[in-house]
Structure formats: C-alpha cells, structure tokens
C-alpha cells in the first residue's frame, strides 16, 4: 500500500505574503520597483512549487470564505506547476452538480488529469445563511449524496437521468472528448457514522482527524464495514497538522499555542508515528503547517524521506 502525501495550502493564512495592501511601506531609502501585476497568487504558486519540488504528491487548497476561491487557485496552480495533483476543497453548496462536473472535465483535460475534489463539511446554519445556502440541516447529507451521484452520473453515463430533492437531470451526460478523462478523485472527511456512510457510497479517500492508533483502527474498521456493505473499498486518509524539528525539544519549544491535535515531534519521532498509522491502513496523509512555504521545505526535505524509508521498508516486508 503506497503512502500518498499531500500538502495543504490555506489561502487565508499568512495574509501579508504577496499582498501589497497588507505589507508595511518600505523605507524611502529602499528603491521599490515592484509592479501591480505581482499579487497574492505569486505566493500560492510559491507554496505549490515548494510542495512539488520537495516531492509531495498533491496540494490541497482550503475552502475559505474570507479569501480567494479554491477552484480558481487550483486552476492557476495546476497550469503553472507540473507534476503535482491539485485538490480544491469546496462545499456541495457551490451550485449545480452538472456544472461542477463539467468544469472538472476541462480541468482534467487541461492538466493531464491532476484534479481531485475534496468536499468540505457544511458550515453551521448562520454561516450557510451568509452564503445564500438555505438548505436545512436535516437535508445536508442528502444534498451531498445527490451532488456526488449526479456529478459522477453525468460524467460516466449517457444518457443520465435523475430526479432528487436537490438536483434533477434529464437525458444528461457528457460526450467525447469530455468524457475521456477520469472523474476527479473524491475526498470526504468526518468522524461520525453519517460521514462514514456518505464515504462508503461516494469517497475514493476518507479523511479522519488526528487520533491515537487504537481510535483510528476502530474508525477504519467501521468505515471498511460500511463500504463493504456498499460493495466498495474506500482508502483511508489522515489530516495531520504538524510541527516538526530536527530536535524534539526544539519542536516543543516552538509549538506554543498550537491546538493539541498538532503532531509536535522530531523528524524521526514524527516519521515513526505516521508510519504506525500507515501500518494500520492509512494510505493518504494531508499535512499542514505554517508558514506554508518554509514548512513545506522542512517537512518535504526532512520528514518525507524518513517516512518513505520506513513505509517503503514495511511494504517490502509485507
């Protein structure tokens, strides 16, 4: 079982980076020749390049209401940075499932099939009302289920007809050449049974939050059982914020104020901890840390080689 490792871009993190309006004026003595075409997207590309050059497999792009839209960033990143998989995160409230699926075909056709979709959990009622999303809380799981059913349906079948509560299609489905690319790999997440049931039906990869090896093993068993009941297999992922340093004590010292799900460890300790999770079935890691560029280099250059050495050895032994 190969271990696939993704880095996570948060468009709302480190707001002043490449954002002229948020940067302090340089002193008068410093001649400033920057031009207006330099913008925030330069930083997104720096992070993407960092992830690609330090041998991450993919870049996830967080869904942030207060910042640039993830699928726009994804297209810009994918065009400029080769080789890396690009996975925008977005909720099922974005609009038409047919339209989202159609947009995915252009993305796939233009990038050699490097798109994934990470559907984010729906926000609370107040946030959804700010987003003109008036679907009631009892209907959200159903909407997501229909969204993914329709999106995959029009991609893979023609004619495709569907009449649900949130989406309706009559004699739909894509023609050649749009249908020659593959449907984006679908990433879902969540700890509760409702989330696991959705993943059992729709996900290629289900992400869990950080947990002990024992807790994860339990959740994986539950996911496997639900997926088996649907006649499917779902790969397992782990979303892991981290802070790693050469020396574990340095890591502890730098970790002040981070949430306690953060993996704070030396490179060797972190590699061991993640390899243990790989051994019980985790095949996708989504790693995140700020500052995103510097930490991508640190994790990519120091942690990933150790982790791949451990998990590669495990694979050969198996």
């Amino acid at each position: 079982m190969t271990l696939t490792i993704h880095w996570r871009l948060d468009p709302a993190a480190e707001p002043p980076r490449s954002e002229r309006a948020l940067q302090p004026q340089l002193p008068d003595r410093v001649r400033d020749r920057r031009v207006p075409t330099q913008n925030r997207f330069d930083y997104y590309l720096q992070v993407a390049d960092a992830a690609a050059q330090t041998a991450f497999d993919g870049l996830f792009i967080r869904h942030r209401l207060e910042s640039d839209e993830s699928r726009i960033i994804a297209a810009i990143v994918a065009r400029a940075v080769r080789g890396i998989k690009v996975v925008p995160e977005f909720p099922a409230s974005v609009g038409s499932a047919v339209y989202a699926a159609k947009q995915a075909t252009t993305f796939q056709r233009s990038t050699g099939g490097r798109l994934g979709w990470a559907i984010t959990p729906d926000a609370d009622a107040r946030s959804r009302a700010r987003e003109a999303d008036m679907v009631g809380p009892e209907d959200l799981a159903r909407r997501l289920d229909e969204f993914l059913t329709v999106a995959r349906g029009v991609h893979e079948q023609r004619p495709f007809t569907f009449k649900g509560e949130h989406f309706e299609v009559l004699n739909g489905g894509f023609d050649a050449p749009l249908n020659r690319v593959s449907f984006p790999q679908v990433f879902l997440q969540g700890e509760d049974d409702a989330a696991l049931r959705l993943s059992a039906r729709h996900a290629d990869v289900h992400f869990f939050a950080p947990a002990t090896v024992e807790q994860l093993a339990e959740r994986i068993a539950r996911l496997d059982a639900l997926a088996a009941a649907e006649g499917r297999k779902v790969a397992v992922g782990l979303i892991q914020p981290l802070l790693v340093r050469d020396d574990g004590e340095d890591a502890q010292r730098d970790a002040v104020g981070l949430p306690d799900i953060t993996l704070v460890a030396s490179y060797d300790e972190a590699a061991t901890a993640l390899a243990e999770r790989h051994a019980i079935g985790v095949s996708h890691l989504l790693l995140e840390a700020t500052p995103m560029l510097e930490e991508a280099y640190r994790v990519g250059q120091h942690l990933l080689p150790r982790l791949r050495a451990l998990t590669g050895a495990a694979r050969r032994a198996a």
Binding site: N39, R40, F41, L65, D68, E69, R71, I72, I73, I76, F90, S93, V94, G95, S96, V98, Y99, R130, E131, A132, D133
Partner: peptide
C-alpha cells in the same frame, strides 16, 4: 442559475485579483 451567487462572487473576485 448554475452557481450559488455568493460562491460565484468570491470566484469572480478572486479572478479579478489574479
């Protein structure tokens, strides 16, 4: 009708910035 208007506005504003 194909896109939520708030989400579309965010995507459009992002494109303006880019």
């Amino acid at each position: 009708g194909f896109g939520n208007p708030v989400h579309s506005a965010r995507a459009a504003a992002s494109l303006q910035r880019a």
